[in-house]
């Protein structure tokens, strides 16, 4: 833990101004990830710019029939928001699959997007880690990598993005609204998180000085046929080994449209349009689901301890699509797999 300055942002413009003036500063929202990392000396900000009181706490309907979620809406409030529960139950479910009730009360929408990997080595400053110290090496590739990625890895990093909420957001085609020194812009969710490549220190495409102000959902919520299935090492309060967000639109027993995204398998929530294409127009059958899984996992690569994830992901995809098609989504309050 290092000494740091603390200031409060008056408004979004002030937050941007403050961080532009001091690039080694960091925003703090719920603090549930940042404070832990600071205690471990992983994050060493010179200043915390507290954005938690900015007026970004509302969930509003948009002109195009979607919803705009302020970056500071707590995870718990979002999951239980009536409009989310009704129209985007996949999102509500994914949030409730994550962390614990206490953490969800503190955690913010923006913070959830920007939470960092749970790779053990990233947390331990006594070990090399390219994400923490670029160029120092990746300890996980030949180390404890049971939790690590099977898709989109690079020789510099095989970490996963740990969020559950983001898996549903990418499946739902959400967008991220940001503000920065150069003004505001909107980023497609699939482009928000990045693959490690040779710059694993960069988790997202957010530019220096930018703040997330909102997440926007388009109209379609796949509320009739959806699921969020999270597979983990205990029945609650553990990060995903593999998770699947699935949404289907059915016409009879044919799939008219499909969304499919995976968590716990890559440096970003993983969505692959070719797998969705393979589902469209097909009967909602086990064979269809299995072939979509095969397509989605075609480039999957395991490491010493996480090879099992490839087969697990395949089974989880099939199961999740089965749940979605049957209209029997996984309930997060029940630990029995639906």
């Amino acid at each position: 833990m290092i000494g740091f300055q603390y200031s409060r942002a008056q408004d979004v413009a002030d937050a941007v101004r403050q961080i532009a003036a001091e690039p080694s500063a960091k925003f703090i929202a719920g603090g549930t990830n940042l404070i832990d990392l600071m205690k471990q000396d992983v994050e060493r900000p010179s200043r915390l710019i507290d954005i938690s009181r900015l007026p970004l706490r509302s969930v509003e309907e948009t002109a195009s029939g979607g919803l705009r979620i302020g970056a500071l809406v707590p995870n718990a409030d979002l999951a239980y928001h009536p409009l989310i529960a009704q129209r985007y139950p996949m999102l509500a479910s994914s949030i409730l699959a994550g962390a614990s009730a206490q953490l969800r009360n503190m955690a913010s929408t923006g913070g959830n997007l920007l939470q960092r990997t749970r790779c053990y080595y990233f947390y331990d400053t006594a070990t090399p880690c390219n994400k923490r110290v670029p160029g120092s090496g990746c300890s996980a590739i030949a180390g404890l990598n049971r939790m690590h990625a099977i898709l989109g890895t690079s020789e510099s990093c095989i970490a996963t993005h740990p969020s559950d909420m983001c898996v549903a957001l990418v499946a739902l085609d959400a967008t991220v609204h940001v503000a920065g020194p150069a003004g505001a812009r909107v980023i497609a969710f699939a482009d928000f998180h990045r693959l490690p490549g040779d710059e694993p220190q960069r988790d997202t495409t957010l530019q220096d000085g930018e703040i997330v102000t909102a997440v926007e959902l388009p109209e379609r919520g796949f509320s009739a046929h959806y699921t969020y299935l999270k597979i983990r090492d205990r029945l609650s309060y553990a990060f995903a080994l593999v998770s699947v967000a699935a949404g289907l639109e059915l016409e009879g027993d044919r799939i008219k449209d499909a969304r499919l995204a995976l968590g716990g398998v890559a440096h970003k929530p993983w969505r692959d349009p070719t797998a969705e294409t393979a589902l469209r127009g097909q009967p909602a059958s086990q064979a269809t689901f299995a072939s979509a899984a095969t397509i989605l996992l075609r480039d999957a690569k395991g490491y010493e301890h996480n090879r099992f994830k490839i087969d697990l992901a395949r089974r989880a995809i099939v199961r999740a699509l089965t749940q979605a098609a049957a209209g029997t989504p996984q309930l997060q309050s029940s630990k029995k797999i639906a």
């Binding site: 749970r118 053990y120 080595y121 070990t127 180390g143 205990r234 029945l235 609650s236």
Partner: peptide, 24 residues
């Protein structure tokens, strides 16, 4: 969980060292 290259315990906290939670 010990990384034997470094000789260090890597899941040294109760988020990553799993014990049963109520759901279990």
């Amino acid at each position: 969980l010990i990384d034997h290259t470094f000789g260090r315990i890597m899941n040294a906290d109760i988020a990553e060292y799993h014990v049963p939670v109520n759901a279990d």
